[in-house]
């Protein structure tokens, strides 16, 4: 069936708001592209300031993704396999950073890891360690905000995966670790990949929690989004150029994923 023809057969009360929605989402992006200083783009993007921010963004977002994978996959397994973690409250807790304003996330992280925070006070008074204003703080902020994407994606895949494969392997004498490594992980592998990429993209765009919790200092905590905000005060064209780069990266990621996120992998 021709897709365009199918769309045309929708009644007006579906077609009109639908098209308005597309315009609403597309216009700001088109505006950004229209204002981008394409001529001087390369020069703007290879300046020392931008490269420093770009490098910091890449390393911190990859580190945050690694943290999310190492902690998030076990959490997703617990949520689907353990009664204690399968309850609604764990799901709510995992979803919370998705809907919490990132600035609130930053304040909450200070309340936990700041030097007057729950855990931060122990670190500071016991060991003289202060987390805020370090690159580690950036990774923590990004992981806090981005991990839900991975957990929810992997959890969805686990719930829809066929447990009979695992049961068969166990019946044949495979140990639990072997079952997990040889059966469970390969089954949910594509969803882990999709969740990790989405998590990475969210970490790359993190702004509010990072600024509040980690501060903004070139080379240490000023990631790309923070550099965009700082550039907005002096050089609008540079801010737009940086925004376009972030936009292109996000679009490439989403196109690459082809809708495989949040619902898990559909076969």
């Amino acid at each position: 069936m021709n897709r365009a023809a199918a769309a045309a057969r929708q009644p007006w009360y579906i077609a009109v708001p639908g098209v308005v929605a597309v315009a609403f989402l597309a216009l700001p992006l088109l505006g950004l592209l229209g204002q981008a200083p394409w001529g001087g783009m390369w020069e703007l993007l290879t300046s020392e300031e931008v490269l420093v921010a770009l490098r910091l963004s890449l390393t911190t977002s990859l580190a945050a993704t690694a943290v999310a994978v190492l902690l998030g996959i076990p959490l997703a397994v617990l949520m689907t396999r353990s009664r204690a973690f399968g309850g609604g409250w764990v799901r709510a807790l995992v979803t919370l950073p998705l809907i919490l304003p990132p600035v609130v996330g930053g304040v909450a992280l200070l309340a936990a890891f700041g030097r007057r925070g729950l855990a931060g006070q122990v670190l500071f008074e016991g060991f003289g360690i202060q987390i805020p204003f370090t690159t580690v703080a950036v990774v923590i902020a990004e992981a806090f905000v981005a991990m839900p994407f991975l957990v929810i994606t992997v959890e969805g895949a686990l719930r829809s995966s066929d447990r009979r494969f695992e049961q068969a392997a166990a019946t044949l004498g495979a140990r639990r670790w072997t079952v997990f490594r040889r059966i469970t992980l390969p089954l949910i592998g594509p969803s882990i990949a999709a969740g990790a990429v989405l998590c990475w993209a969210r970490a790359l765009g993190e702004f509010g929690a990072t600024l509040t919790f980690a501060g903004s200092f070139p080379g240490i905590t000023r990631t790309m989004p923070l550099a965009v905000y700082a550039a907005l005060d002096v050089d609008r064209s540079q801010a737009i150029a940086l925004s376009v780069v972030l936009l292109l990266v996000s679009v490439l990621i989403l196109v690459g994923l082809r809708g495989r996120f949040l619902t898990g992998l559909r076969r």
């Binding site: 200070l110 700041g114 204003f133 501060g215 903004s216 200092f217 070139p218 905590t221 700082a230």
Partner: peptide, 19 residues
């Protein structure tokens, strides 16, 4: 400095929070 903040209230907030 450990942070170059986007406005003066952010600087003040960090001092108030004793961070």
């Amino acid at each position: 400095a450990v942070t170059l903040d986007p406005d003066v209230k952010s600087v003040l907030a960090r001092v108030v929070a004793d961070e």
